[in-house]
Simulated assay, not measured.
Amino acid sequence: MAIDTVRRVWALDAPRLTVDCGILMLGTGGENDTIPSPAFLIEHDEGLMLFDTSLAGAGDPAAAYGDMAAAFQIEFPESYRLDRQIEALGYKTTDVRRIVLSHMHFDHTGGLDLFPHAQGFIGAGELRYARTPRTLDAPFFRAEDIEAAGRISWNEVPAGYDHDMFGDGSVVLLSLPGHTPGTLGLKLRLPDESTLVLTSDAAHKRASVDLTIGMPFDVDSLHKHSALQKLKLLGTQPGTTVWISHDPEDWESLRTGGAEITSAAELAAAG
């Protein structure tokens, strides 16, 4: 099978949240970490797609999240609005034909209402769990986002199955359950034929992958450990960069050239 590449990839400007490190990784805590909440825009011959949709409430996070905006110290400038960033690149939100949602936590679903027209891809059981979560992690799901998700036509990716979206090897949806029942990552073949793996919340910190240690709110620690092992193995493949989406150090080092990402090989060398 021929291996093709995506045309372009952007790590869009991301709002930030501040959390205790102990939320991000077991065995840590006592210090705060300010983390990005990203969305990635990908251009393929078959059209535009988004991986995650970040937060809602640009310019006024409290309007979307109430007291949680202050609790997480959400920083979300109006200029970071997802629709405005897409338009600044010369596209419209209606040009986004596909949405890949890593999972249904509120910091990944805030822009779903912009894309009712898109074809959706989500991990099996994820939307069902978002509607009836455990008490422990129920605050991480936002009713308005679940309602917006209900207006999208979803294709479910079975647990344990990595889906080659276009059949050309350029965009592969990675099954990484454990953080939530249907957590997905994304593997992209960039124009220089290097590989970029976006972890979403299958990992929150670089050390999570290195040490295969999860977080307190993972719904399934056994599957989460396997997901971290999978990411660690992917990182050993030549020409592959694993991007821990919430890790602020990854965010700073892998975006040094700006929002557009052209080469995973260059990212790895810079890191």
Rank of each mutant, 00 (worst) to 15 (best):
I3K: 10
T5E: 00
V6P: 03
R8T: 06
W10D: 08
W10F: 13
A11T: 02
L12H: 03
D13W: 00
R16Y: 11
R16H: 14
C21M: 12
C21K: 06
I23G: 05
L24T: 07
M25I: 02
G30M: 11
E31L: 03
T34Y: 04
P36K: 07
S37G: 07
P38F: 03
L41M: 11
D45L: 01
E46L: 06
G47V: 08
M49H: 09
F51N: 04
D52T: 14
T53V: 15
T53M: 12
L55I: 15
A58Y: 13
D60A: 07
D60N: 14
P61I: 01
P61L: 01
A63D: 14
A63Q: 09
A64C: 11
Y65F: 01
M68S: 15
M68Y: 12
A70M: 10
A71G: 11
Q73R: 03
P77V: 14
R81A: 14
R81D: 12
D83K: 00
R84I: 05
I86F: 05
L89M: 01
G90W: 09
T93G: 07
R97I: 02
H103K: 05
H105N: 13
H105Y: 14
H105F: 13
L112G: 12
D113Y: 13
F115V: 02
H117E: 07
G120N: 02
G120V: 05
I122F: 04
I122V: 15
A124W: 03
G125W: 02
G125P: 05
G125I: 02
E126F: 04
R128L: 04
Y129C: 08
R131Q: 15
P133I: 09
D137V: 07
A138T: 05
A138H: 09
P139N: 00
R142A: 15
A143K: 03
D145I: 09
D145K: 03
I146L: 12
A149E: 01
I152T: 03
S153T: 09
S153G: 00
V157C: 02
V157D: 00
P158D: 07
G160L: 01
G160C: 10
Y161H: 10
H163C: 12
D164M: 11
M165L: 15
S170C: 09
V171Q: 12
V171F: 08
L173M: 12
S175A: 10
S175H: 00
L176I: 07
P177T: 07
G178S: 04
H179V: 06
H179M: 07
P181H: 03
P181W: 00
G182K: 08
T183V: 06
L184H: 02
G185E: 10
R189H: 04
L190A: 03
D192Y: 00
L198C: 11
D201G: 05
A202F: 09
A203Y: 08
A203N: 12
H204C: 13
H204L: 15
A207Q: 13
A207W: 10
D210F: 05
P216C: 09
F217E: 08
F217P: 01
S221L: 11
L222N: 08
L222R: 15
H223C: 13
K224N: 10
K224C: 15
A227Y: 06
A227N: 07
A227Q: 11
Q229C: 13
Q229N: 08
G235A: 03
G235P: 01
G239D: 10
T241N: 04
V242L: 10
V242S: 05
H246L: 11
E249T: 14
A259P: 07
E260V: 13
T262P: 01
A265K: 04
E266I: 06
E266A: 12
E266K: 10
A268D: 14
A269P: 03
